[in-house]
């Protein structure tokens, strides 16, 4: 019964995907492209914007997946992301006189480290100090917002950001080469990480143990798996990905830091994770959907279409997020043990 529903859904999704690909090709290569509405929906710039808007969501959702699959609820992705963004900015501005690439890579490294440290903090709060994980996540958000605003030097300027790298050959493919294969490095990295996390989660020793810790920690413990060690490590790895998302915002998307620049992306990541049923590819699809709604908003404003009031246009990403998540909450299934502290006498906590 459920399977048939699922098959129906994926058939529909496949049909929509094929239709979208066809429309994209037509709009960008034929005279169909002169139609303003079709340009809004299918132009290369809309698709590029979608990908750009999706990268931090993808990374944030991967962070959520790593944490929650191992049993730690992480609503602090927003804070981890913001901390990573601020750290990347500080690293970049203090190394402006280095060669650009070295300075940027240093920024990436620092955003990873700070994100990982935020992850460690969350793990310490949640595991060692048995703090409610929702509270701990909220603490991270407030902490990151407060510290970054306090320490932010408004006169500092980061010079330069990652530029697009056209992959030889692939970028020559009409339309799609432009969308997928002429991107800056962190975008490629994010897409690559989706594959890596998926394979690791379902086909590696680490993955099967991680999922066991998130579903039934005692079962993992009784076969000799150190549940809390897995939770520490994965929460830190997740933090690094969220930090990288922040690094992306500063070092690749915007080039500068602004107070509160993550602007709810951490929460939308969380929604993408849920919508994607805690699966890397599902989360990526959800992130692309949410990113696409942001692109629509942008394209509608750019195209000067005024038949739809601006306020409604601005609502699109949030409305889609709410509808998507609320419609799916009953059908997706979170890891059974998430949010529960695991205690055992023999645990090496």
């Amino acid at each position: 019964m459920g399977n048939r529903l699922l098959r129906g859904t994926s058939l529909l999704a496949m049909f929509l995907a094929v239709a979208a690909v066809a429309m994209t090709l037509l709009v960008n290569t034929t005279s169909l492209g002169e139609h303003p509405w079709l340009r809004v929906f299918f132009s290369v710039s809309a698709l590029n914007f979608t990908l750009r808007a999706s990268v931090p969501l993808i990374l944030g959702a991967l962070c959520g997946i790593l944490c929650e699959r191992t049993g730690i609820v992480n609503i602090g992705i927003e804070g981890m992301m913001l901390a990573g963004a601020f750290a990347a900015f500080v690293a970049k501005t203090s190394t402006n006189d280095w060669p650009l690439l070295a300075s940027l890579l240093f920024g990436v490294g620092v955003s990873l480290a700070v994100g990982g440290a935020m992850g460690l903090l969350h793990a310490l709060f949640s595991i060692r100090y048995r703090m409610d994980q929702i509270i701990s996540g909220t603490v991270l958000i407030v902490l990151a917002a407060g510290i970054s605003a306090y320490l932010f030097d408004r006169d500092a300027v980061a010079e330069g950001k990652f530029g697009a790298i056209a992959l030889p050959g692939l970028s020559q493919i009409p339309v799609f080469g432009e969308v997928f294969f002429s991107n800056p490095p962190l975008t490629y990295l994010a897409l690559l990480l989706v594959i890596v996390v998926h394979v690791a989660l379902f086909s590696s020793r680490w993955g099967v143990r991680t999922r066991a810790c998130g579903e039934h920690p005692r079962a993992a413990d009784t076969v000799g798996i150190d549940v809390n060690r897995f939770r520490y490590v994965n929460t830190m790895l997740g933090g690094m990905l969220a930090g990288l998302a922040g690094g992306f915002l500063v070092l690749e998307a915007v080039g500068q830091f602004q107070e509160g620049m993550t602007a709810g992306r951490g929460f939308i990541s969380l929604a993408a994770m849920i919508f994607g049923n805690w699966m890397p590819f599902g989360a990526m699809a959800a992130a692309l959907l949410f990113g696409y709604t942001q692109a629509l908003q942008n394209e509608l404003l750019l195209a000067g279409i005024t038949t739809v009031p601006r306020q409604f246009v601005s609502m699109i990403p949030y409305v889609v997020t709410i509808v998507a998540v609320s419609g799916f909450v009953g059908r997706v299934r979170p890891p059974a043990a998430e949010g529960k502290v695991y205690e055992t006498e023999s645990g090496s906590e």
Partner: peptide
């Protein structure tokens, strides 16, 4: 029972003592 309900019999039995080939399960 110390079994993970959403996993297969294979995954449950090998958990903690997984055979590895080319780095993967």
């Amino acid at each position: 029972f110390q079994l993970v309900p959403v996993m297969t019999v294979i995954d449950n039995i090998m958990l903690g003592d997984e055979p590895i080939r080319y780095g993967l399960l």
